[in-house]
Design a binder for these strands. Sequence first.
DNA 1: GCACCGCTTCGGCAATCATCGAACTGTCGA
DNA 2: TCGACAGTTCGATGATTGCCGAAGCGGTGC
Lengths: 108, 108
Amino acid sequence: MREPHHPSCGEFELPAVLHALSDPARLQIVRRLADGDECTCGTFDLGLSKATLSHHFRVLRESGVVRTRPDGRKRMLSLRDDDLNERFPGLLEAVLSAKRPPGVEALL
Amino acid sequence: MREPHHPSCGEFELPAVLHALSDPARLQIVRRLADGDECTCGTFDLGLSKATLSHHFRVLRESGVVRTRPDGRKRMLSLRDDDLNERFPGLLEAVLSAKRPPGVEALL
DNA sequence: GCACCGCTTCGGCAATCATCGAACTGTCGA
DNA sequence: TCGACAGTTCGATGATTGCCGAAGCGGTGC
């Protein structure tokens, strides 16, 4: 299986990364990956079709947020947290730590 | 002049904020504001029409990134950095500190 | 080889977005 | 009162996006 194209760390563009992270479904994917969860494409059950999921994976991959590694007939997804931190220090952490909903417990 | 609606800090939504920041024109606006530059709407010369600029201001305002204060026949724009930092700590700083283009000097 | 599996790619569709010119609103100064 | 000024709002338009089912494609295992 061909390795899909990934931008190098220096090719990352902030608007593209922010746009990739600005979709709730993609945000959920990123959070799952950050939790160290399993990372094949099929493990994401967001109520979306395979085609749509694949689309989101592509947006994340082409912006540099995520890496896709072919492994047999599966594809292993992983966060490019190292590259993101190098290029946009603190961004990923800020996005991930904003998990808490606007509820009261955010004040604790 | 009527004060336009601003979401409260608790109403901020991460995807909306990220989307607001994911447009190059809006990112430029935010950076100018962060530089402490003058802040009436008319001072932004991004090669866009008044109507388009006004649209971008609205996106920024409705997501919580920016505050608009009527002042005579002008409108003073300001970054809601305090509110953003409270709700999404580190996010704004990460976005702003990513100013440097993908050039070599980014490594310094 | 062949069927299955995991995922991508390909149209296509409806919704949203960025953009504009034109018309409008509210404010200030003459 | 009457412009000039600063912005907003109103259509309209073309581009992008999110979504899907169907078809395609490389790997695995029978």
